[in-house]
Amino acid sequence: MLRSLYAGISGMKANQVKLDVIGNNIANVGTTSFKGSRVRFQDMVSQSMSQALAPGASQGGINPRQVGLGVQVAGIDTLVGQGGMQPTSRNLDVAMDGEGYLMVAKGKTPLTNADGVGVDPTEHTANAPSGTDLFYTRDGALTLDKEGNLLNSDGLRVLGYAISEVDDKPSLDYDVTKSTTTPPKSPTLNYVNADSTTLKPSGTLIPLVIPEKIFVLGDANAVPPTSDGDVRVKTFSIEKDGVVKAILEGGKVAILGQIAVASFKNPGGLSKVGGNIYQNTSNSGAPIVRTGKNTDKAVPDNSAGYGDMLQGMLEMSNVDLAEQFTDMIIASRAFQAAGKTISTGDEILQDIINLKR
């Protein structure tokens, strides 16, 4: 009788948690790239009234007699399934179609490739320098600041590979000593001609920049010959592999870098920190970074295991409203039933007390 009271209390508490999770899912049905959650229950310890008995010569076996003492929350799982795609026609919007999270950083900005976020060439794990915090997101609603830094909606810098030519003599450059415009206060990036066949990614990740102008080396063999000078960036595009290309005045195309993408052995183990961003935990595993474009053949290439980056689209929430409302009805009725257990136990206690009268 008293056990039923406490079992009812545990049922109300557990279903209250489930209603809280359902309410959060419904509230975020329109949140970009939101991943819904579910609640799982498990029974508490059971009190044994009698132990099991094995069959004997004169009688058969007897099962144990146990009374359950209630319910508890077994886990709250993040459902990492793909959300629907919504076209936006905005060139700074990107959606991951498949596996992968964008990498964003907060804190000290690496000034060169040498002090960027290191990527292990064998394990493909990321190692952030001191003073830099790494986060991960599926929200591809990117923005630019006045210096051209590529950011998420909360101002965290988007990380990626700098792209250069194998001989380290790019035909397009953004050099502080050459450019007549004020360069971004971000890592110095080499911008190379997209027609080059000898491209290679940097070994580290640094914040990407989309500048207003790029310094272009002149071509004496052109007709007519061209001289060195700044060329304005007319527009840019983001390809499926994350390579950012700028179309310059005059028709040349420059590669500005490649957006980095990471995956996890257990994405459900990521911790939500708000703002549509996640942080890895001890159970999610370390981030496994996608290899860059034209990576050296000596380095294992894992790029085939990641999804495509779709420009002009955003991933929507993966919450199914019909399923959430059904779960809400079940949780609400279960909550009421648990409350009824308590009121019924109270009536029985009242009858016992009345026996003395």
Results as ranks from 00 to 15, higher is better:
residue 122 T to K: 12
residue 122 T to D: 13
residue 122 T to V: 13
residue 123 E to M: 11
residue 123 E to W: 07
residue 123 E to N: 13
residue 124 H to K: 14
residue 125 T to N: 13
residue 125 T to M: 09
residue 126 A to R: 07
residue 126 A to D: 12
residue 127 N to P: 05
residue 129 P to W: 04
residue 129 P to V: 09
residue 129 P to N: 10
residue 130 S to A: 11
residue 132 T to K: 08
residue 132 T to Y: 12
residue 133 D to W: 02
residue 133 D to S: 13
residue 133 D to V: 11
residue 136 Y to D: 07
residue 136 Y to P: 01
residue 137 T to P: 02
residue 137 T to E: 00
residue 140 G to R: 04
residue 141 A to M: 11
residue 141 A to R: 12
residue 142 L to I: 11
residue 144 L to T: 14
residue 145 D to S: 05
residue 146 K to S: 13
residue 146 K to C: 10
residue 147 E to V: 03
residue 148 G to H: 07
residue 149 N to M: 09
residue 150 L to I: 12
residue 151 L to P: 00
residue 152 N to Q: 08
residue 153 S to K: 14
residue 153 S to A: 15
residue 154 D to K: 12
residue 156 L to H: 07
residue 156 L to Y: 04
residue 157 R to K: 14
residue 157 R to D: 01
residue 158 V to A: 05
residue 159 L to T: 02
residue 160 G to W: 04
residue 160 G to H: 04
residue 161 Y to E: 06
residue 162 A to K: 02
residue 163 I to D: 02
residue 163 I to Y: 03
residue 164 S to I: 03
residue 165 E to K: 15
residue 165 E to Y: 12
residue 166 V to T: 13
residue 167 D to M: 03
residue 168 D to W: 09
residue 168 D to T: 10
residue 168 D to G: 10
residue 168 D to V: 10
residue 169 K to Q: 12
residue 169 K to R: 13
residue 170 P to V: 01
residue 171 S to C: 05
residue 172 L to S: 10
residue 172 L to Y: 13
residue 172 L to K: 05
residue 174 Y to E: 14
residue 175 D to M: 04
residue 176 V to K: 04
residue 177 T to W: 12
residue 177 T to Q: 12
residue 180 T to H: 01
residue 180 T to A: 15
residue 180 T to K: 03
residue 181 T to A: 06
residue 182 T to A: 11
residue 182 T to N: 08
residue 182 T to R: 05
residue 183 P to L: 00
